[in-house]
Simulated assay, not measured.
Amino acid sequence: MTADPKSSPLFSFGVPALFVWLWSTGFIGAKYGLPYAEPFTLLLIRMLLTLVLLGVLARLLKARWPGWRGAGHLAVTGLLVHGCYLGGVYYAIQGGMPSGIISLIVGLQPLVTSAVAIMVLNEKVSVRQWLGLVLGLVGVCLVLLEKFGLNDTSGGFPAWTLIWAALSLGGISLGTVYQKRRGTGADLVSGTIIQYMAAASFFAVGAFAFETREVEWALPLVLSMAWLVFGVSIGAILLLMWLIRRGAASQVASLFYLVPPVTALEAFILFDERLGLLAMAGGCLSIAGVAMVVMRPPPVNKQ
């Protein structure tokens, strides 16, 4: 009997690892692009370019389109997962909040998602998984404590940026649970298109209501936009929707614990930001926490 390749260890761990890496590069791309365009304007351009490419892909793959009710659920998911999350992160960074602090706040998502999943989806989370969630959060705190010096910069940004950070955290947490409950039956490509259309509408309203919409098309913006569209908006998001479809919401959310350590490694490679022993220890704790949440215990053979 041929084994299912999707159940192999390489597939089970390789796909989540690829998603974590792609998702982490979104922070790098935002850092490069934000000096040349305002947040909603930058995100609107990103969504529109992505929609064009996904439209071509949907035509080639002959994607199935959901009914009006399914499209409505997907639109809500898009507003939460893409609109609120990305808008909150970009505006918090634009307003002066250090990227380490916004990463730490968003890193609380697995705890929020697990709590919502328990209340809404009636998911059962074991003691081992709760311990893994806490361990992962401690690891993220250690990484960011050393890398960004949170004890020295906690008061160095406007208080109103916390509102954007809370919007981002709430959006990605609620959107993950909502997608698990309402949006898992849709075609991945057509479903993502509907989500991006909803997010693009949100960004368009914000850009025309609050921003000048001026863009400086410098080379760093062009390169970062290309990666944000192909690598993150298409690659990472399609993987995220696929992972949510296959796994419990709390388990998928735990993958986000790995994003700050991976981002720290990328910053070391790109910007020569050194990692000390505390940050490396925190990264190990995060990986251990994710493993405790994601890995299922072996089945017990009943005699």
Score class of each variant (00 low, 15 high):
residue 115 A to W: 10
residue 5 P to D: 02
residue 17 A to K: 03
residue 183 G to H: 14
residue 13 F to Q: 04
residue 285 L to W: 00
residue 43 L to N: 07
residue 19 F to W: 05
residue 114 S to C: 09
residue 131 L to I: 15
residue 280 M to E: 07
residue 89 V to H: 12
residue 176 T to W: 12
residue 298 P to G: 06
residue 130 W to A: 05
residue 160 W to E: 14
residue 39 P to E: 08
residue 277 L to P: 04
residue 224 S to V: 02
residue 14 G to R: 03
residue 20 V to H: 03
residue 37 A to K: 03
residue 2 T to E: 15
residue 206 G to K: 05
residue 110 P to T: 09
residue 14 G to V: 04
residue 167 L to D: 06
residue 108 L to M: 13
residue 191 G to W: 14
residue 204 A to E: 07
residue 18 L to Y: 00
residue 40 F to V: 01
residue 142 L to H: 05
residue 68 W to I: 15
residue 208 F to P: 07
residue 107 G to L: 04
residue 131 L to F: 14
residue 125 V to L: 09
residue 54 L to S: 00
residue 194 I to W: 03
residue 32 Y to K: 01
residue 44 L to W: 10
residue 64 R to I: 01
residue 290 V to Q: 06
residue 181 R to A: 11
residue 12 S to E: 15
residue 46 R to D: 02
residue 206 G to Q: 12
residue 52 V to A: 07
residue 33 G to P: 02
residue 57 L to R: 04
residue 57 L to Y: 08
residue 54 L to K: 01
residue 237 I to C: 02
residue 204 A to G: 03
residue 243 L to V: 04
residue 6 K to G: 00
residue 245 R to K: 15
residue 102 I to E: 07
residue 118 I to V: 14
residue 166 A to L: 15
residue 298 P to C: 09
residue 186 A to W: 12
residue 130 W to C: 05
residue 47 M to N: 07
residue 227 W to Q: 01
residue 216 E to F: 08
residue 66 P to A: 13
residue 67 G to W: 00
residue 149 G to C: 09
residue 289 G to Q: 11
residue 137 L to A: 09
residue 82 H to K: 00
residue 111 L to S: 10
residue 271 F to M: 10
residue 209 A to G: 11
residue 93 I to Q: 12
residue 267 A to C: 03
residue 235 G to F: 02
residue 282 G to R: 00
residue 242 W to Y: 13
residue 106 V to P: 10
residue 263 T to E: 01
residue 121 L to Q: 10
residue 13 F to R: 04
residue 143 V to I: 12
residue 120 V to Q: 10
residue 284 C to E: 05
residue 279 A to T: 10
residue 253 A to T: 10
residue 83 G to D: 06
residue 83 G to Q: 05
residue 193 I to S: 02
residue 296 R to S: 12
residue 175 G to W: 14
residue 72 G to C: 03
residue 247 G to E: 14
residue 174 L to V: 11
residue 7 S to M: 09
residue 92 A to C: 08
residue 252 V to R: 01
residue 180 K to H: 11
residue 183 G to P: 12
residue 284 C to P: 01
residue 51 L to V: 07
residue 203 F to D: 00
residue 71 A to M: 14
residue 123 E to R: 05
residue 226 A to R: 04
residue 98 P to F: 01
residue 243 L to Y: 03
residue 267 A to V: 03
residue 263 T to I: 00
residue 279 A to L: 07
residue 50 T to H: 03
residue 122 N to I: 02
residue 119 M to E: 12
residue 122 N to M: 11
residue 236 A to G: 12
residue 100 G to L: 06
residue 166 A to F: 14
residue 93 I to D: 06
residue 31 K to N: 04
residue 7 S to Q: 13
residue 150 L to P: 07
residue 126 S to W: 06
residue 290 V to S: 09
residue 231 G to S: 08
residue 50 T to G: 08
residue 190 S to R: 05
residue 215 V to S: 09
residue 80 L to A: 07
residue 95 G to D: 08
